[in-house]
Simulated assay, not measured.
Amino acid sequence: MARGSLPRASEVLAERLRTSATAQGASRLVVLIDGHSGSGKTTLATELAYLLKAQHVALDAFYPGWGGLEVGSAMVRGVLAPENPGYRRWDWKRNQPDSWHKVNAKRDIVIEGSGCMSRDNRELATFGVWIRLDQVERKRRAIARDGATYHQHWDRWAAQEQAFFARERPDALADAIMDGRTGQIVFRADLSPEE
């Protein structure tokens, strides 16, 4: 970090996670980062995993196609399984399952993707982050990132996100809420009971 500059969201989060893990005596950090498509999950997860020297798992690697948000969410339990943890990759070009990817059950891990923070998955994690960002900016970012391919699937994917988020409420399960535009993070533990 440059002298006199504000810390990046990932730096603030990494410091908080280290402090929290030490205080809890946690042997392994398991961080879930959830939010709508285009909100900034991958960017935050990549930076955070680098700072923590942790594994980074993106649900994009194993969602089974454009209708697979729920299945991808359920697969997080396999990533965190005590025996043979990992996931079967999804070949997006051939639209079929691909190779098995093993995960180290002892190393810290950052898992990100829409639908990763279900109630069941949150019970297996040490920390959860929700990223919020308005739909106009999210769609602009997602289409800029993935182009016309994603544009034709936007509504279908958004409907799956809405159903999942309404049922599971990852925003309420999160320990921290990040503004996807400014990078500002609010930690629930710092809020007074009435906030």
Rank of each mutant, 00 (worst) to 15 (best):
A142G: 01
L80Q: 10
L69W: 01
K93I: 03
A144G: 07
G128D: 00
E195H: 10
P85N: 11
A14H: 10
M117N: 02
L29H: 14
A174C: 01
P7W: 02
D60Y: 04
A26V: 13
P170K: 08
K139R: 12
A163W: 00
R3K: 10
I111S: 08
Q55C: 08
A159V: 00
D120C: 11
L32R: 11
P193M: 03
G78S: 13
A26S: 15
T46G: 14
W100L: 14
M178C: 01
H101M: 12
D134A: 01
K41L: 08
S20P: 12
K102S: 15
K106S: 15
K41T: 06
H153P: 09
R167D: 01
T46A: 14
E168Y: 05
V71A: 15
P7C: 07
A21S: 15
L124W: 05
R119L: 07
H153N: 12
T182S: 15
I131K: 05
E70G: 05
A9L: 04
R88I: 09
P193D: 05
F187G: 07
D60M: 02
V79S: 06
A23E: 14
G78N: 15
G68I: 03
I111L: 08
H153F: 13
L13Q: 10
A189D: 12
V129S: 02
S37M: 01
G4A: 11
H151F: 11
T126G: 13
Q160N: 04
L173I: 07
F164I: 00
N84K: 13
R188H: 05
E161M: 01
I143T: 06
N104E: 09
R181F: 02
G68R: 06
R188E: 08
V57F: 11
E161C: 00
A125F: 12
V79C: 12
R188S: 09
A189H: 08
I143P: 01
G128S: 02
A144F: 00
R89L: 07
L191V: 04
